[in-house]
Design a protein around this nucleic acid. Structure first.
Length: 937
RNA sequence: GCUCGGGUGGCGGAAUUGGUAGACGCGUUGGACUUAAAAUCCAAUGGGCAGUAAUGCCCGUGCGGGUUCAAGUCCCGCCCCGAGUACCA
């Protein structure tokens, strides 16, 4: 018998040479698209946690191939990214080289696990042939606008036509807030520059001076999902608000559809909920408050228009554009000081101080739209500039934050709720009955809100409004290692490079750092200007020339390439379009997507947005590319700790540590055995400072460590490398064990000791096919009823479990079957051959080996799963509901072909029946043809 | 704080959605084989009580109530853990 690693190598080589997993774009078989989120190839390589999702999807893909599907199961690399660039800054090595090395390592590790990818379709986002089309899609976004009337993206030419015909008054678009109204005549009189600037306010990707998350340490802006708790997700550096001219994606145009279509998705509740929260849809009203002594109004958004009569003050965000204009001369100094201070604070500081409410009175007043009463206008940083209008109507009786502010600033509070004590806090309960509220008196929020909105709309004081938390996504990064924007600037206005000249290739630079004057790294590129007349990239020294213009210096963010890659896999060789209509109409969408939930508010929302855009412009046939998604949970590390006696170089074993004052030290898990005993010699040699360490051992002379579950990471010395496992036990054992650990959706700790169980199973499984002399042997004898029951019961269980991704219980079922068949010394082909196919998705290497030994063509891909169903139907078990006097009481499980007598006997024997009848004999037991058992008492 | 998950042996986890709780695996204990160890195989393994024994009984799914012939599963009220989010008006 060959050892397992030898079998692995044999079949991995076979699959690669025969392109066993090549998917065809033309097939009569039903199609199945199984996709993993592609990885960023980092320098550290894969640890045992990474392949979890790949193994899970691989099992599904292989299983579906057995069932006769044409399976598309591709893999690639999200290969633009920060680490390669940071490495380049330090060493001067081109990021492409680092990336190439890392990819090679990833590929090697994936191959060793026996993953059935169609490598002919491999894509890399940093590949010229790929990012050509990322740039192309960017240009399409630039060339489209969002028409609210048709609720979809439309070509910008159509908008220009409308402008020329009738101006923009009748246009309902998702456009910038500050877009002025103009007539057709005004439009025609605009200069080219003015026209372009106007159109920019409508385009789905636009250039705008906006407040962005600026991270000085990384030298770049960050999208909202890249800022976590006020610091950068990568590196944890402080993040500040800063105004910059940036490319922005108008994702808010799709907010409603992104929200609405979540209902169509078979994602986990938590994932959908995360996206819902991120989109943050809330229904309410826009209300206009006229300013006293000014021509302007203050507009606010509120979800509680019913509390309008409780307003006692207004609050503007410090950044609100009206602040400067309306501040009274006597208040100017304090207000300016407050605004300055707010600007200087980092996100983190602003959050840290969130407990205490601060603010300043502007000296201005608005008039209450119904009562006409004067209401003071304040500024405070508890109102966010980026949400709603950046201004609120404050109702201290109904909103806790307003209540706190009112208390802090000594502003009066009007109670507008019946029988509610608002001495200690606001009443946010919507069931409270309104008082002091004119025509709303006596109503609850449920009726009062629509009443108030109707009244506001009637009097033209406000209107119904749906507000989203989702903001337009900043798309510019001040980095080198990303897709260049195919844009150049003429007269300060952006122009696209003609599509036929794509890709705009990333230029060489001498230095990957930003330029000395603070421009992005592409500022270091010499050949980086666009010659409009000759339509080519030229030396930027020529920029003085009339037809040569500067190119964009920013690059696209990491999520650009990952927002459409799933479509590219369908037709990755295409160099005339991103993918052919034929291919995309055949594969349509991803049938099953595997990935981590950490992408909920990043990749998974941006890619849905791009898919909807591509759908609008007729490039893809589905508005959602991934209806079914499985989130695999993380595999955690089990860290080991030795306990050092404080102030000494003496370590004390776990059982004795309570007798000393100690602190824990991470120990490399590879130096600890499965009983938690430490290899003291290895530990001493691990680091210089441990050479002379002393050890207080336990009575058995051993030194024990303590264990704790943490994230798997190099710095915690708890990383387990899949290569080591594969080398020792074979790939099949690793695959089975990762799946056996628990449900794939749940985070669970890795424990190498448990491997033994599945390794035994793999060995036992193989042993079934060999006689006592170690010869492969299958006989053609007829199987008996027991053997058939075991086989088909297992087939049923494993099949339903795979369909539900309950791989751990599927493996349990196979373990039971193998134990039972071993006990019976089964050697029949009719039983053991189907079993090979059953285990093949989990343990493909062993399955191939046995399948070949059994005399079949290699590659179990064409094994006849469906044929077995009939046999299964004959021998499977069924559930029989049992009722007492017609009322259903319980169910018994028996073979599907059980006779009437057998069922009667089973019911009588059933312990619970006897219990329920209290020892009485049933008058009669009726077994009805519909397989319902009725007991007449 | 809010939202969504989840609490089952020493451990990872099962339980066909209201029907014999603890499948399967690890670990542990005992046994077989062996000069010995490893490997392998067999048996036991939630807790308690009674019995020489086969076996029988009681208690047990975070806590307290409830519905039901029957609750890990459903309802009400708590406690704890995890994830996301954070002054979103």
């Amino acid at each position: 018998m060959k050892d397992f690693p030898a079998i692995d190598r044999k079949w991995q080589k076979y699959w690669a040479e025969n392109k066993t997993f090549k998917a065809d774009n033309h097939s009569d078989k039903p199609k199945m698209y199984v996709l993993d989120m592609f990885p960023y190839p980092s320098g550290a390589g894969l640890h045992v946690g990474h392949p979890l999702g790949y193994i899970a999807s691989d099992i599904y893909a292989r299983y579906k191939r057995h069932l006769g599907y044409n399976v598309l199961h591709p893999m690639g690399y999200d290969s633009f990214g920060l680490p390669a660039e940071q490495y380049a800054v330090q060493t001067g090595q081109h990021p492409a080289i680092t990336t190439e090395q890392n990819i090679r390592r990833y590929r090697e590790q994936m191959d060793r696990i026996g993953l059935s990818f169609d490598w002919d379709r491999e894509i890399r986002t940093s590949d010229l042939k790929y990012y050509k089309w990322t740039q192309w899609i960017f240009l399409q976004l630039f060339k489209h606008w969002y028409n609210k009337k048709t609720d979809r993206a439309e070509p910008i030419e159509k908008l220009i036509e409308i402008f020329e015909r009738e101006g923009n008054a009748g246009v309902e678009a998702h456009a910038n807030e500050d877009t002025p109204v103009f007539t057709a005549e005004q439009w025609r009189r605009m200069s080219e520059k003015e026209k372009n600037e106007m159109l920019l306010k409508y385009r789905l990707t636009y250039l705008a001076e906006t407040e962005v998350n600026w991270c000085p340490a990384l030298g770049t802006v960050l999208a909202n999902d890249e800022v976590v708790n006020g610091v950068s997700e990568r590196g944890g550096h402080p993040v500040y608000k800063k105004k910059m001219r940036q490319w922005i994606m108008r994702i808010t145009a799709y907010a409603e559809r992104l929200h609405r279509d979540l209902d169509k998705l078979q994602w986990s509740d938590s994932l959908k909920e995360m996206q819902r929260n991120w989109i943050g849809r809330s229904e309410g009203a826009m209300i206009t408050f006229p300013l006293k002594n000014f021509d302007d109004n203050i507009e606010v958004f509120t979800t509680r228009p019913d509390t309008l009569f409780g307003v006692t003050f207004m609050v503007l965000a410090p950044e609100h554009p009206l602040v400067e204009k309306i501040t009274a001369p006597g208040r100017r100094e304090q207000v300016e000081k407050y605004v300055e201070a707010a600007k200087r604070k980092s996100e983190l500081e602003r959050m840290a101080e969130s407990k205490e409410k601060t603010g300043e009175f502007t000296g201005a007043y608005v008039l209450h739209p119904f009562t006409g009463k004067e209401i003071p206008v304040w500024i405070s940083d508890y109102v966010l500039a980026g949400y709603g209008t950046g201004a609120i109507m404050a109702v201290p009786a109904g909103d806790q934050r307003d209540w706190e502010f009112a208390r802090a600033m000594n502003i009066p509070i009007i109670n507008i709720f019946e029988e509610q004590d608002i001495e200690k806090g606001a009443n946010e309960n919507k069931d409270a009955v309104l008082i002091n509220s004119d025509f709303l008196n006596g109503l609850q929020a449920k009726e009062a809100i629509p009443r108030m909105i109707a009244e506001l709309e009637k009097r033209k004081l406000g209107k119904r409004k749906i507000q989203y938390k989702l903001r337009d996504a900043v798309f510019s990064r001040q980095r080198y290692w990303g897709e260049p924007f195919p844009m150049y600037y003429k007269d300060g206005v952006p122009y696209p490079i003609p599509e036929k000249h794509l890709p705009l290739e990333l230029p060489e630079v001498e230095d990957y750092k930003p330029t000395p004057d603070g421009r992005p790294p592409l500022g270091n590129a010499r050949i980086w200007a666009w010659d409009e007349a000759n339509e080519k990239v030229v030396d930027k020294a020529l920029i003085d020339h009339k037809t040569v213009f500067p190119l964009e210096l920013n690059t696209m963010p990491g999520w650009a390439g990952s927002s459409w890659y799933f479509n590219r896999y369908m037709d990755p060789w295409n160099d005339r379009e991103p993918f052919s209509q034929e291919a995309v109409n055949y594969w349509r969408k991803v049938d099953l997507y595997f990935g981590g939930s950490e992408h909920a508010t990043g990749h998974l929302i941006y890619s849905r947005f791009w898919q909807k855009f591509l759908y609008d412009i007729g490039l893809v046939p589905e508005p959602e590319y991934s209806v079914k998604l499985i989130n695999q949970g993380m595999i955690l590390g089990t860290s080991a700790f030795a306990h050092r006696v404080e102030g000494t170089n003496t370590f004390v074993s776990a059982g004795l540590k309570d007798q000393y004052k100690t602190h824990p030290v991470h120990v490399d898990v590879n130096m600890v055995d499965e009983h938690n005993a430490l290899d003291i010699e290895a530990f001493r040699n691990w680091r210089d400072d441990l050479k002379n360490a002393e050890f207080i051992t336990e009575d058995d002379g051993k030194f024990y460590v303590t264990r704790e579950v943490e994230k798997m990471s190099k710095s915690k010395f708890n990383v387990v490398n899949p290569d080591d496992i594969v080398e020792q036990y074979g790939a099949d054992t690793l695959r089975l064990y990762e799946m056996f650990l628990g449900p794939i959706q749940i985070a669970k700790p890795w424990n190498t000791a448990g491997l033994k169980g599945v390794y035994n199973f793999v060995k036992k499984f193989r042993k079934l096919y060999y006689d006592d002399q170690g010869r492969f042997r299958l006989t053609d004898r007829e199987p008996d009823a027991d053997e058939l029951r075991i086989l088909h019961g297992t087939i049923r269980k494993v099949r339903t479990d795979i369909e539900n991704f309950d791989y751990n219980t599927a493996i349990s079922a196979m373990m039971i079957a193998v134990n039972e068949l071993t006990a019976r010394k089964t050697d029949k082909r009719a039983i053991l051959e189907p079993l090979i196919v059953l285990i093949a998705p989990f343990a493909p290497h062993l399955a191939e080996e046995l399948w070949e030994l059994a005399g079949h063509q290699p590659s179990v891909c064409r094994a006849p799963y469906p044929e077995w169903d009939e046999k299964y139907l004959q021998s499977a078990t069924k559930e029989y509901p049992v009722s007492f006097n017609g009322k259903m009481r319980f169910k018994i499980t028996l073979p599907a072909d059980a006779s009437k007598d057998e069922i009667e006997q089973a019911v009588l024997a059933h312990e619970r029946t006897a219990k329920y009848l209290g020892g009485k004999q049933p008058r009669k037991i009726i077994v009805v043809p519909g397989r319902i058992v009725n007991i007449v008492v």
